[in-house]
Structure formats: structure tokens, C-alpha cells
Design a protein around this nucleic acid. Structure first.
Lengths: 122, 122
DNA sequence: TTGTTAATTAACCGTTCGGTTAAATAGTGC
DNA sequence: GCACTATTTAACCGAACGGTTAATTAACAA
């Protein structure tokens, strides 16, 4: 699988995004990182999620005695955001269109207001 | 599946990203959009990909006689990029670290330069 | 060396994914 | 109505996904 696909795929799971959210507040070892999720799933499940994040390059693990410390790595996120960025016009454009639309109905309201002798905001 | 997961999942396939790339150059109907992919897969496969993009809200389809015209919609991309944005520090931080590193080796070079009577840029 | 804790691996299971082929639906035009 | 084009749906298939439990590895500590 290509790099970008791996990144987006890794980000497409809420558990993994929650893990990144936790790691954004600081480095931790697996069992501490696991705590909030152990109500919902087993430790092996967590190991798997971490492996997905790691092979996407979104985290790195360092051995610290019997603990594995996890740290977030932003590089793939930058690549993802750079890819999305090329489509920026498509959400700014629609905001523009929304602006146009609002102007249009505003104009219509004014016209109707005049017709019906009703007026709003000048 | 939550909105963000659906979006990232839709973006995690290279065929679908290629389709968005094509659509970013303008609206087209399915069969024209399909052309570059028909070497690699069948039309039903393309229908499926388009359905994934559509249910993620990344495209909208409008009926035009017997053709379905596809148009890109940026809104989910904005949501995705907004989510990623909160991690910006994690790639800028590493660039900072790179900066620090460069300054360090620059300083070292200067020292060495003085030692060897070599100097660069003042 | 034996026990304890941390984490992973192995083997398995149901569901989803990305593809296929064949059939069905829908609109155009003679 | 019939043929043609555009597109989707149905049914199926193997591989990948997200989870499980049980067993294994690895480091520390008594």
C-alpha cells in the first residue's frame, strides 16, 4: 500500500485517533495508553492498533526496560494535510457560493419586501 | 461509522483519490470519469468507489438524462484537515528540532572553520 | 529460580472491502 | 415497441480488518 493510503487508513479508526489525541499530550508506555480503552477491548487489540499506527509512521516506540514508550510523529500528518490542501478551493469555493446565495436571497427579500410593502433591516 | 472515520476511510484508496483529482479539474459523468480506470477494473467496481465517495459526502451526483454527473464537494476535506491541524505542532516541532540541529552543526562548522582558518558567510 | 508485570504473537472468527460476472434498471431515439 | 447507451444492483469470492482467548517473550525483583 502507498504511503498516503496507509496514513489515511490508519486515521480512519476512532480508537487510533483517540490514541493519537492521548499521545499529543505526551509520551506514554503502552499499558498507560491502553487504560482508557480496556473497557472496550483487550490488550492484544490495542497492540494491533499501535502496530497500525507505527507502521504508518504516526508513532514511534522506544524500549524502556520492560515498557514500550510511544511518541507521536507528525510527518505523515503533514503529508496528509499537504495532499488535502490542494483541494482547499473546493471548500472555500462553496463558502463563496454560500456567500453568493445569501446575497441573492437577501436581494430577493428586499424585492419582495418592496412588493408587499414589507421591509427588513433597511 | 462516524463522519471523520468515513472521510479518512474514503481517502485511503488510491483509485478514489485519483477520482477526486480528476473531478478537481471539473465535473464529469461516470463513464468519462471511469475511462482511465477501465484498464484496471470493471465499471461496477467504479460504481462502488463512487458510492463510497458519495456516502462520505466527498462528491455529489446529479442526474442529467441517462448520465450521472459527478462533482467534488470539499466540506469533508475541510473537516479532515481541521482535525489534522490540531497536530500541526508535531511536524513543526520536528522541523524546529531540525532547525536546532542545523544551528548546532553550523556552530560546529564555524568552530572548525576557525580552527582550520576557514570561514563562510561572516 | 521463581514469580510478577509488560507487551506481543498465534490462532481463530465474523464482517467489511475491493474486485468479479451476469442481470436489471433507466433514459434516448428510431 | 425495440435497440442502444449509461449506470446500478445482485450474488459471489478471496483478502484484510478488528476483535477475541490462550500462549509466549522479555525484563525486573525477591
Amino acid at each position: 500500500m502507498d504511503h498516503l493510503s496507509t496514513t489515511f487508513s490508519a486515521l480512519s479508526d476512532p480508537t487510533r485517533r483517540a490514541m493519537l489525541a492521548r499521545l499529543s499530550k505526551g509520551e506514554t508506555h503502552v499499558s498507560e495508553l491502553a487504560k482508557p480503552f480496556l473497557k472496550d477491548m483487550s490488550l492484544p487489540a490495542i497492540t494491533k492498533h499501535l502496530k497500525v499506527l507505527e507502521s504508518a509512521g504516526l508513532i514511534t516506540k522506544t524500549r524502556d526496560a520492560q515498557w514500550r514508550s510511544c511518541r507521536i510523529n507528525g510527518t505523515p500528518l503533514k503529508e496528509a494535510t499537504d495532499w488535502i490542501e490542494q483541494y482547499r478551493t473546493f471548500w472555500e469555493e462553496s463558502l463563496d457560493r454560500l456567500g453568493e446565495y445569501l446575497k441573492t436571497i437577501q436581494a430577493e427579500k428586499k424585492t419582495k419586501g418592496k412588493k408587499h410593502g414589507k421591509k427588513r433591516n433597511g
